[in-house]
Amino acid sequence: MNSENNNGMSLIIKTVTRLTVGFIFIYGIYIVLHGHVSPGGGFAGGVIIALSFVNLMLAYGKEELYKRVPKTVLSLFESIGAIMFLSIALLGFTGGYFFYDWFVYKGEPFSIFSAGTMPLSNIAIAIKVASGLFAIFLVLILLRVTSGEEE
């Protein structure tokens, strides 16, 4: 089983993963974008997006995914999310105070483009949570491999 894990799992799992992982990813984006209308939000949607990458990694093996999504890309995305959230907060000073709702266009309730800065904050939190959690998972898996080889 250990040698199988390095190259991914069997053909059935690979095919099913290839078909379903896109839907998981889109469901995560749906939860993030509708965070201010229906239950959900940035954190839960971000974890679902991270889970889709974890699913790919379990099916196709760690080396295959580490080639395409290295650690520096994940750190970059996490920093982008953090800076985006902080800049949304700091832009509130144009209206007077921290976290002021600086969006001029308020929009209709129950639609995606409403509630001011909340969708933007949700997107920022989702980017941060997804890349951060997937980075932790990647690092833990890689540690397990190297320590096994050394022993």
Partner: peptide, 23 residues
């Protein structure tokens, strides 16, 4: 806040400081 999800309006509107700390 014009947000129909009250949890979201508390998390990102009234209590946004707490969310910033959590992030």
């Amino acid at each position: 806040t014009q947000a129909t999800n009250l949890i979201s309006s508390i998390l990102l509107g009234f209590r946004a400081y707490d969310t910033l700390g959590e992030a």
